[in-house]
Simulated assay, not measured.
Amino acid sequence: MTPQQRAETAAQAMMQADNASRDLGMQITAIGPGLATLTMRVTGKMLNGHKTCHGGYIFTLADSAFAFACNSYNRVTVAQQNQITYIAPGKADELLTATARETAMAGRSGVYDVMVTGEDGRIVATMRGLSRTIRGQQFPEEGQDA
């Protein structure tokens, strides 16, 4: 299995079990080893008192992209810490895009940077996620730690 096939298969297995991402309408638009891009349409139920996307939904999109990127090696990996900075509001009915990229990996610890953008290309938020690989796989694969 190639690294790309592994990433695609792991993403499919994760999305099947990820009720939160699916229920929010998130779609995987790109996946590869150490990277993932997800989109989410801002619905009326996601708007805060300012009529902009609630930051919790923006964080959830960023966190999901981070999760798919760091689990792309078919090793169960969890968030150890995340820090988000909001730059601009998400707008009603806007398609937000979160792109997560691995920036460092040492042993079981990884660092991922996530950029959330609006449809017009503006930066909505940036997030840095720290990951920790634990025991298990997204799908059975020989030669990997189960």
Results as ranks from 00 to 15, higher is better:
R132V: 11
N82T: 14
D120E: 10
M26H: 07
T117Y: 01
S72C: 05
N48W: 14
A106I: 14
T29I: 13
R122V: 07
R41N: 14
N71M: 01
E141S: 07
R132W: 05
C70V: 00
T29Y: 00
F139E: 08
S109V: 15
A20Q: 12
R22P: 04
T85I: 06
T43G: 12
A100G: 10
A10E: 03
E141F: 05
G90Q: 12
D23G: 05
F66T: 04
A36C: 15
R108H: 07
T37D: 00
M127H: 04
C53F: 08
T85Q: 13
V42I: 12
G49A: 13
T29W: 01
I84K: 14
R41D: 11
T52N: 13
L24N: 15
M40E: 08
P33F: 04
F139L: 08
M14T: 05
G32S: 06
L96W: 03
S64P: 02
G25A: 09
V76F: 08
C70R: 02
T52V: 14
A62E: 05
I87V: 15
M15S: 00
P3R: 06
A98V: 02
N71S: 03
G129S: 04
E94Y: 13
A62T: 10
L130D: 09
F66Y: 09
E142H: 09
L47S: 08
C70T: 04
Y57S: 01
D145T: 11
V42F: 04
I134Q: 11
R135G: 10
T117M: 01
M40Y: 08
A67P: 00
Q144Y: 08
T77R: 07
L95H: 06
Q27T: 05
G34R: 04
A36V: 00
T126N: 12
Q12Y: 05
A36E: 00
S131A: 13
A67C: 12
I84H: 08
D113T: 08
R6Q: 11
D63H: 06
Q144W: 06
C70H: 01
L130C: 10
A69K: 10
P3H: 07
R108M: 02
Q27C: 06
R132L: 15
Q16L: 11
T60A: 14
T133C: 12
A79F: 05
I123Y: 06
M1S: 09
Q83S: 13
C70G: 00
D23R: 13
L96Y: 01
I134F: 04
T37N: 03
R128W: 03
K91D: 11
D113V: 03
M14Q: 13
I123Q: 14
A30Q: 14
L61V: 02
Y73I: 08
T133Y: 01
A67H: 07
V116Q: 13
A69R: 07
L47K: 13
A100N: 12
A62M: 09
T37V: 03
V42N: 04
T133S: 15
L95K: 06
A104N: 13
V124S: 03
Q27E: 15
E102L: 08
E94A: 13
D63Q: 03
Y73K: 06
A67I: 02
I87E: 12
M1D: 06
I28L: 10
T99K: 14
N71H: 02
V114T: 07
S131G: 15
Q81V: 04
S109Q: 15
A146G: 10
G118N: 13
